[in-house]
Design a protein around this nucleic acid. Sequence first.
RNA 1: GCCGAUGUGGCGAAAUUGGUAGACGCACCAGACUCAAAAUCUGGCGUGGCUCACCCCACGUGCCGGUUCGACUCCGGCCAUCGGCACCA
Length: 821
Amino acid sequence: MLEKEYFPQKIEKKWCEIWDKENPYKADNNSPKPKYYALSMLPYPSGKLHMGHVRNYTITDVIARFKRAQGYNVLHPMGWDSFGLPAENAAIQHHANPQTWTLDNISYMKKQLKMLGLSIDWDREVTTCLPDYYKWTQWLFLQLYKKGLAYKKTAPVNWCEHCATVLANEQVIDGKCWRCDSEVTKKNLSQWFFKITDYSQELLDDIEKLKGWGDNVKTMQTNWIGKSEGSILKFKVKELDDLEIPVYTTRADTAFGITYLVVAPEYKDIEKLTTPENKEAVEKYRQNAKKLSEIERLSTERIKTGVPLGTHIINPFTGRVCPIWVADYALVDYGTGAVMAVPYHDERDFDFAKKYNLPLVQVITGDDFKEGEVYVEKGKLINSAQFDGLSCEEAKKQITQYAKDNGFGDFKTQYRLRDWLISRQRYWGAPIPIVYCPHCGEVAVDEKDLPVLLPTDVDFSVKGKSPIETSKSFKYTICPKCGARAVRDMDTMDTFVCSSWYYMRYADARNDKECFNRDIINKWLPVDQYVGGIEHAILHLLYSRFFTKALRDCGLLDFDEPFSNLLTQGMVLKDGSKMSKSKGNTVDPDEIYQNYGADTARLFILSDSPPARDFDWTDAGVEGCYKFILRVYRLFSKFQDKIKLNYSFDVKNLNKKDETLVRETHISIKKITNDIENEFQFNTVISRYREFTNAIYDYVKSENDINDDVLSFALLTLLKLISPVCVFMTQEIYSSLGAKNSIHDEPWADYDENLAKTSSLTLIVQVNGKIKDKIEVEQDLSNSELEQIAKNSAKVADAIIDKQIVKTIVVPNKLVNIVVK
RNA sequence: GCCGAUGUGGCGAAAUUGGUAGACGCACCAGACUCAAAAUCUGGCGUGGCUCACCCCACGUGCCGGUUCGACUCCGGCCAUCGGCACCA
């Protein structure tokens, strides 16, 4: 029996408890059904769920439920990206242990997720900060190490003073730390890197294979990898016989126009290249450059500065002797750190040359060339000896080939992507499983000794070094090779390492012998549908793609890309701006659960915008969705005596009114199925829920001519169609109607193509493309019949009186357009 | 500067292959029910015009132009907003 009124709080609690006990959404590794892997980006356990989480997990959950109903064996897991700085900061603030803080948060948020009614297989839950997970993160590090993909080097790296740690390039946004927004400086440190640059070309090439990814993410990755095709040209130094300066250029065609050369302040041979007279000025310039923050340095507005070194290069093409300058517009970590300057054909060089009165030589000409103005357009070569008259593109090839033939150059492909710096000078991360032995040097920890456990005897209040260094038990160990006293690497890994493979672990989460079984992972992966925020477009998604390729090359798996389809959901806004604590415009999911129930939250968060677009949270919208749920419930409670779980009827014997409802039902199934399958357009799915519900209300308006079987068909179909979204309400209704199965175990509804359209249709009649009349007609009339009907219209007759019919266009089942003169 | 996305009523938005622009909802307005309110139900709701009750006419999907019997949809040229990359040689 259905209660007269619906109380979501009470009902949702009831089903939560039942589902918690039963874990009804276990994914079966051995099912014969086709697999479907639906994945949400795993949350960081910050304390409480926010609406962004609710949106993310609801989208994935509806997809998972839809696919399950369609007969797929669905894997829909959840876990916790639980290493990272906030836990450590909280520990410092509250004098708590980061682990305690993190695990408490997880247990609270897990409860919130369950209240949201997600169909997750909780047996596969993964927590990256626990040893049974990070043991394998460390193991994977060692596999990359063995393969030469993890290496240590001393390099100028990004340093965030506030977070007291280094950062990967991807974590520096406009010269600022991605986490705390403070300015990033450079420090020279010895750090661990993953050799993601070995995969630059493959990462770029395979973007094309990612058919199910949005163009925005794909271009962002393409930009980030930053491939450019150019040439290396080497220049002899006039004053130093044994020194050559190679430059990277994409404009080899302008080589005859070189009038000077620029090296970065950090250029390795800069001291050798500086003459004694210039030493002081150069040194001063370099010191100044060092002081500049990344933000200042990167500003394109800044006026270019530089000082000459006193030495010169000889342009091998022209024999011209050109001065070498140091200038900070040359970047040490791109190309070779040295740039050939062609002021007539490059804006930066032009500005610089103007300022320091360096000569200009024109070597390219074109239609809009103007004397004395920089000309960066492509054109034809002049003043370039045997290359005169060539197009720029052709000249690039020929000039580089000439340089190659004569031993002073070659073609070169350059990428902007840098290796991934993974060391962090923080406690709350997976320790890097390396020890340093006075005899053997850098040695990998033996695999059987994993995990290298995080020490607990640490002082979190220390400043200027990682808390881990305060541990007495952690630092000293024994060399796995020779048994001598050795010290551990005191750094931990970037949390993005942990999150680069968690989706693989889900496939085989409880395996304590290996990080995952190869057959099982090959069965489940790649992920069929990944859902998450756009903020990971480069970071997490690029790292995960790299990991997949690297682990493939380590022989651990057999696929090339981790995520076949990617849905980047839009932000959740309130009053036009992103929900954030600082703006005070957040909405607490707990409050929504309490006031309206999770079904309302799920329904609303999907209702107003397509998933990829930003979503504006409004209180009125929530209210409207709540009312809809009650409206549906009322329909069932009012007519529960008429509803038959085993209905049956023959469409041929139905009256017009019944047939219309049957057709509405089929139309709804078709529309909703198509809309989910096509880009997960849940907003239109929900519109159709409402239209369909309205149609049923229409049908029951006069209660005396209701066909119970037809009504049952419509109502039970509506229930199934809504069930992926409003999981509690539909479950409650279905079970109250006496059904043995859960509504969620019932198969998806099928539709009949012939019934999924209205019996009649509205014919549009136009004269010269303007609508003159709308006429109800039967489906599938012939063109001549339609034309005749149109011409019989009085309104058409009025419009074409005194005019001559030029032609008549008939679109079957749609319109007739009469063209007159 | 380069690249990508977006642009439709007061608001969120919808619209297979070009074929009724504004589905569905929010807000608003009116009516029913009520002593009253809430809830619920019914209806209306782009702009302007007219000889104005429901008819009719014109305009209307960022702007300008084109193709077409017909354009939110296709083509050319712009503009604006958001996002990514960027002294990258």
